[in-house]
Simulated assay, not measured.
Amino acid sequence: MQQDISNMNREGLPSNKSLLKATVVAFLVGALLLVTTILPAEYGLDPTGIGKQLGLTVLSSDHDSHSQPASSAPTLLATVSSVWKGKEALRNDTMSLTLGPNEGAEIKAKMVAGERFVFNWEVQGGEVSFDMHGERLNAGDEFTSYWVGRNQSSASGAFEAPFDGTHGWYWQNKGSEPVTVVVKTSGFYETLYQPE
């Protein structure tokens, strides 16, 4: 009698094998939609090329301030939030400094809040510890650390000054041989210099 009740409860329901097959098919369809439609339309990523053929990559250009649909002419926008405005002209600088064992030194940029640069630095001959930081004007010994690292041979990134002042790096050679740090910057700032 109990066997009849369990059979009655399962009547009309799919088997475990059918449920598993339906789940796998749903997952595959979802993954296919993600790759062919959602990624091109929302993020401009089109690994298959189908999004471009369907015109879906144009939808992502509304979010991307650097691209416009190929069929439209450039237009002047009333408000653009991704424009960098600065008083200084675009600069490109390269500086280097040599550090003996257990020696440290800085290179800094004088900047106004909102000014930006991209940077890359490399160490020739070893590794260094570093502190990327900034000081407000006339702040004495007070500073704000942005990025601290140890045993690095290179670093790169982009930086926006959060306040008026000097912003840059302090490197320390904790090795037993001299090293040379070469830093390259490109952006909007008053000057790049090595404090004395």
Rank of each mutant, 00 (worst) to 15 (best):
L56G: 04
P14T: 11
N151Q: 10
V148K: 13
D141A: 07
S6E: 15
E190Q: 13
E127C: 04
G168K: 05
A113T: 00
Y189L: 02
G49N: 11
D164M: 06
N92M: 12
F27D: 06
E88W: 09
Y146M: 02
N151P: 01
Y146R: 07
N120C: 01
E142L: 08
S145R: 15
D131T: 10
L137E: 14
N9L: 15
I50W: 10
E103P: 05
S61K: 14
L99T: 03
P74C: 08
L99W: 08
K87I: 01
Y43T: 00
E190G: 11
S18Q: 15
F130Y: 12
T144W: 03
D4S: 15
S156E: 12
V112E: 13
A109H: 12
V182F: 12
K184H: 11
L33Q: 12
Y193K: 06
T185Y: 09
K174F: 08
D64I: 01
W169G: 03
K52A: 04
F163L: 03
Q172I: 09
W169I: 00
D46A: 08
K52I: 00
L34T: 06
E103F: 07
E177I: 02
L13Q: 15
Q172N: 11
V181G: 02
S6M: 14
Q2I: 07
Y43H: 10
L45T: 08
L76P: 00
S60V: 01
S186L: 09
L56I: 05
K85L: 05
R10C: 02
W171P: 03
Y43R: 07
N92A: 13
W147V: 03
L99N: 06
G175A: 08
E88Y: 13
N173C: 05
Q152G: 06
G86T: 04
V118M: 13
E115L: 02
A73H: 11
L19H: 15
L59S: 02
A109S: 14
G49C: 07
K110H: 10
S65W: 13
K174S: 07
F117I: 01
G175I: 00
R150P: 01
S156T: 02
G49L: 09
Q172D: 05
G157E: 10
Q194F: 00
M95T: 06
F188Q: 07
N102G: 02
S6D: 15
S96G: 10
T166A: 10
G12C: 03
L97G: 03
L99G: 03
W84R: 14
S176L: 10
G157A: 10
F130H: 06
E11R: 15
H133G: 03
A109E: 09
L56W: 10
V58S: 05
D62V: 04
V29F: 09
Q2E: 13
P195G: 06
S60T: 02
N9F: 15
S153L: 04
M111C: 05
L13R: 15
V83W: 09
K17M: 14
T57V: 13
N151G: 12
L39P: 01
L56F: 10
A89H: 14
A22V: 00
F159H: 07
D4C: 05
P47L: 11
G165K: 09
P195V: 04
F163G: 04
Q124G: 06
L59Q: 05
S15M: 12
G86E: 09
V148N: 14
H66I: 01
V29Q: 04
E135W: 01
K174D: 10
L33M: 12
G100A: 05
